[in-house]
Design a protein around this nucleic acid. Structure first.
Lengths: 162, 162
DNA sequence: TTCATTGCAAATTATTTGCATTTGA
DNA sequence: TCAAATGCAAATAATTTGCAATGAA
């Protein structure tokens, strides 16, 4: 099951919510940046290019709404802000849920895909009765480059996309 | 390899750092609350009982130091604050690294132990060259009780220990 | 003595909220 | 028309930081 832009509009209307330019633009920006980890500020700056009057509060309210609609996932890379990415429910492209490898030295964030966790989810459901709907998995360590040059200019820990 | 209280003092001295009452008390509080997820505020309140003059900033600086010393792990349960627990390196008790099941309905946090991730860590190291030193895994969903009484008084989402 | 540490208060910063105004249905 | 949505500014709240005073070695 996949959600298209038209579906999205219908979903809003069905709930008595309104289709606004702001909502469409936020969705578009997120869809155009699949697999990037976007902060509210990042989204804000991009939407501003098309719609200079938008307010940051609207971005926050919109991603909250999208999260409830299961249109975006929130990720936390422990750098002091929350990040958002469009969910695999939107627009079909079957994207496996991925994990993040976070380099403690240079701050780089590397995505890693695999399905081993499905097995674990089933184990949890059997053993605890807890119904899993989502998960977040982060690995901390050192990336290949930083391992090579151990004398790597001791990084800032700032978020870096890969 | 396990770190004792004496080891801890030695580690500090070796680095030219000082053994203070505040540091000893924070360590003690954390050790006495294994498997609880303690906020800085929680630690602060408990240390205050023995040492009423301690400042909150000292708690923050101390857990930062302990993290660098690998004495505590930091966990993020997405409730707006960071939590700390003593690491399995301290005082021997072999505690498996555990994961957290977070109930979206009532906010309960259930620990879950297993070792499946070791396998995954080895896979990552082989495929990406990334050296994993730690991980954090959270599952979101609904706990058994909330599933039963779906009409569960729609929870606050506040952190609840189990 | 001397430099690391502390407590306090002020600063920082991501996110949320109140409210008057605007806008989609 | 009218409730939902927005932009703005102010509020919130966890964490960090500057600095003078304190304390461990």
């Amino acid at each position: 099951m996949s959600i298209s832009k038209e579906n999205f509009k219908k979903m809003l209307r069905e709930k008595g919510l309104k289709v606004t330019n702001q909502r469409l633009l936020v969705l578009e920006v997120l869809a155009d940046h699949r697999d990037k980890h976007m902060t509210a500020e990042d989204i804000y700056d991009l939407v501003k290019e098309d719609y200079p009057d938008i307010g940051l509060a609207t971005i926050y309210r919109t991603v909250q709404l999208f999260r409830k609609m299961q249109l975006v996932d929130r990720i936390n890379l422990d750098d002091g802000c929350l990040r958002y990415e469009i969910s695999d429910l939107f627009d079909g492209e079957t994207k496996h849920h991925h994990h993040h490898l976070i380099c403690k030295t240079c701050g780089k964030v590397i995505p890693f895909e695999e399905d081993l966790l499905d097995e674990l989810e089933r184990l949890i459901e059997k053993e605890t009765g807890f119904l899993v709907s989502d998960h977040e998995l982060k690995f901390y360590g050192q990336c290949e480059e930083c391992l090579k040059k151990q004398h790597c200019i001791s990084g800032t820990g700032t978020h870096v996309e890969v």
